[in-house]
């Protein structure tokens, strides 16, 4: 069921106000985690758009996040662009990269696309080590600037990041929601579930796929730029293979076709390291165990979800008794 554009906007504004008060009432560390959740929401939205709707899989969105991140940092570092402009450049650069990649990807299906994007995720971030102007292993600093003066002198940077990430997440959520319920969203769904019929109905499959890949890449690029903003630094190691896996996991956990699930997926992805730490401490706090427990839990969840609840852990079903028809 499509919510009206206005109704969704009002709901998102209500969430924004709730987040505003939440951000003021919890510790700095939780605020930081909140910013991380928000940027994961953005990244997971990009996967849901791509995989859940247009039916293309990407294991390389971590690499696209890296493209966005490096674009933002380089723009700020060498051209001294403003924070907002840097983020826009991140979106454009990643979208451009996605356009090129999507052009090749539109010809591929399933395992070929998965393998190609995996290759990208393994190789691309390490390229930064090879070229001097990208800062190598030490990376480049990324400082988006202090919070504006009118917010007061004791307004922390963390909270500023949380505001930026949350606002970006709400805007992206609104845009992607409307996009998925537009002509394009319907075309993607038609293309995914019945490619031949879709083509007969006059949908240009290749163009549709490339469009989905381009938009998804742009959104991922924004998430990448926000990620390095919260880290204050861009390095190749900020974009490991596990990042690509994590956002796919987040998308699958909450149901690959449910945009609202992005929030649940992001919360789980961010909560897992915390929970794993608690377990590891109880288990004796051996370093090699605690370092690998988050990956273990994430992978286990991913396998269990795909085996037992392939359309996502249907949290919506528990929250409302109304049975929703899944697309």
């Amino acid at each position: 069921m499509r919510k009206s554009r206005i109704k969704l906007a009002l709901e998102l504004i209500a969430i924004a106000i709730a987040l505003f008060f939440l951000g003021n009432s919890v510790s700095d560390f939780r605020v930081y985690e909140g910013a991380t959740v928000a940027l994961y929401v953005i990244a997971i939205c990009s996967i849901i758009l791509l995989t859940g709707y247009s039916g293309q899989i990407s294991l390389g969105h971590g690499a696209l996040m890296a493209v966005g991140a490096y674009a933002a940092v380089l723009a700020r570092y060498y051209w001294h662009t403003s924070g907002l402009l840097s983020l826009i450049i991140a979106v454009l650069a990643a979208a451009l990269f996605g356009l090129f990649l999507g052009w090749a990807a539109a010809r591929l299906r399933g395992p070929y696309l998965a393998g190609t994007t995996l290759a990208l995720a393994v190789g691309l971030p390490s390229l930064a080590n090879q070229f001097h102007f990208l800062g190598g292993e030490q990376g480049l600093n990324f400082d988006i600037g202090a919070p504006p003066k009118f917010l007061g002198s004791n307004f922390s940077t963390t909270k500023w990041y949380f505001w930026i990430c949350s606002l970006a997440a709400l805007i992206i959520f609104w845009l992607v929601y409307n996009l998925l319920h537009s002509r394009f969203g319907r075309q993607w769904q038609a293309m995914r579930s019945a490619p031949v019929s879709a083509a007969i109905s006059g949908i240009n499959i290749a163009r549709s796929k490339v469009l989905a890949f381009t938009i998804s890449s742009g959104v991922a690029g924004l998430a990448g730029a926000l990620l390095v903003m919260t880290l204050n630094l861009v390095t190749p190691s900020a974009f490991p293979l596990s990042l690509s896996f994590a956002i796919v996991t987040g998308a699958v956990l909450a149901g690959i076709t449910r945009l609202g699930g992005a929030v649940v997926g992001a919360l789980i992805i961010v909560a897992i390291p915390d929970i794993a730490d608690q377990i590891a401490i109880k288990a004796g706090g051996v370093e090699r165990v605690s370092a690998n427990l988050p990956g273990f839990i994430t992978s286990l969840l991913l396998i269990l979800t795909i085996l037992f609840a392939p359309n996502g852990a249907n949290i919506g079903k528990f929250m409302s008794l109304r049975k929703k028809k899944t697309s």
Partner: peptide
Amino acid sequence: GPVLEIAPVIATLG
């Protein structure tokens, strides 16, 4: 279902 094509990829990734 929508996960048919990606399920094996996701499973082996997991």
